[in-house]
């Protein structure tokens, strides 16, 4: 009887550890806790070129993570990329209307993310608004082309 109790306890611990492990994978590894877990609101931004931006890429403000990319789709009318952002609900009604969104790269070849920088407009963005002022991703080939043509002109 004693041995069987010990065994049941062991199996119980095993199951519990498995479930805790799954929670760890959810919160710490896939980052379910930050962004999706809390209250969010949605903003849109149109970019001429998003480079390597993907759903779940992070969105930062002054380098601090404030949300993530929820969706990327092609705007059939203007042939631009329409990016859906999910931001912390605390920021709703706080960001000025002339806030800009730029696609930046962390490190030389690292992942791409969206960096927000605020302007000075007294009016603010509400949920569902679109950020007008955007800066497209830096594409290495275009950069080189620009550089070369400048050289030629000089």
């Amino acid at each position: 009887m004693k041995r069987s109790k010990m065994m049941e306890f062991g199996v119980g611990l095993f199951m519990l550890a498995g479930i805790l492990g799954l929670v760890f994978l959810g919160l710490r590894v896939s980052g379910l806790g930050n962004g999706v877990g809390g209250e969010t609101f949605t903003l849109y931004a149109d970019f001429a070129n998003i480079g390597g931006l993907k759903p779940r890429s992070k969105v930062t403000l002054a380098g601090v993570r404030v949300g993530q990319v929820a969706n990327v789709e092609l705007d059939q009318e203007w042939f631009e990329a329409r990016v859906t952002l999910e931001l912390d609900a605390d920021l709703e009604g706080q960001l000025p209307r002339d806030t800009t969104a730029a696609i930046l790269t962390s490190g030389l070849l690292g992942e791409q993310y969206i960096g927000l920088s605020v302007g000075g407009d007294p009016e603010t963005l509400a949920g569902g608004d679109t950020i007008r002022d955007t800066q497209q991703a830096l594409v290495l080939e275009e950069l080189i082309q620009q550089f070369v043509s400048n050289m030629v002109r000089e």
């Binding site: 896939s30 980052g31 779940r56 992070k58």
Partner: peptide
């Protein structure tokens, strides 16, 4: 280490 992980790992897709 952690934020790179969190931004690229999807709970349903990967886990």
């Amino acid at each position: 280490y952690w934020s790179g992980m969190q931004s690229s790992v999807g709970f349903l897709d990967d886990v």
